[in-house]
Amino acid sequence: MKILISVLSLMFSLNVFSSAIMNCGPNQIRVWDQNLGYSCIQHFQTPPADCVLCQGYQNYRPFPNWFANFPPAVYQPTPMPWWAYQGNMYYPNLHYPGAWSNSGTYPGMNGQHYDGQGNVYAGKPNIYVESIHEEKKFSLSFPAAELSFLATTPSLDEKNTWKGKIVNKDRFEVEDIHYDYLFYDIRLPKEKMQFERGLCATRDEAIKWMLGDLKEMKFPAIALQDFEEHWKVKLPVYPFYCIYPQYNQQLDQVLPLSTNLEQVHFTRSLYVMIPHRKEPDVDEPQVIPFPVLDSVEIRPKTLIRHETMFKEWGVAFLGE
């Protein structure tokens, strides 16, 4: 019995998604790798000196991706969703979340083309629902006085509210039309967000980490599928990203949501992503400090299943 417990403990400790190392010390960077899990380092391992083509691109371990320097529109190593093939024909910046700029401290959104205020551009927060009810009237509102929406589907009413029914336990019906999720793009202020918890990873690992994080929060399968499909296309190809997750604790202050329903629970997550053109290195001063603390500590936990559970994911980028 003792042996069994020991083996199980060892297996648990080797789970790369568990927080084997909770927090890092000063002058360290908290990083994640799907094979090694979390670790604290001072700088990312430099790629092999003779690997010219893989400099600054994607995951160089264990083998360099020799095709990574080709523009995505020309070479796609993995099948893309239908809309990406069509978008590629018309839009050279399809593989960016929107109008993009490389001229700032960090690559980021080019704010001159967007309405409103706020230096955090939240792309595609999607809200999914799981309910015990086959049919239930709902309303979901953004009560803040000043809001800088960029897009919504379906459109909000004049009180910044979606009204309709939850149908078939997991879909929304608004004005007789069914939606898998409610969608919005918005600009948000950076001030109430946290920039000390999170991790840095390569682009591919970052996507895997976020998917794993959503799984830990029990997001439904369709939400995970949509996330992966969208961000594999729309996350710009930079070699490294630092991720600063914002959860209920931050988002409820920055962008409160309210509903008419009782027995309801929200799980909210927004991953603020900062691209890095080269290996993160603590010796190089940063405007946004590298993450050193564990984000799992602030991740919402749902111990009780409520009648209706809203789950929201989004990915955000800073303005240039």
């Binding site: 839009y91 050279p92 910046n93 109008a99 800088s148 929406f149 897009a151």
Partner: peptide
């Protein structure tokens, strides 16, 4: 220059600000 895009079901509504 693409600014945004959204997936809309038939009959569905959207708004770009």
């Amino acid at each position: 220059l693409l600014l945004m895009h959204t997936e809309v079901p038939v009959g569905g509504t959207f708004q770009f600000y």
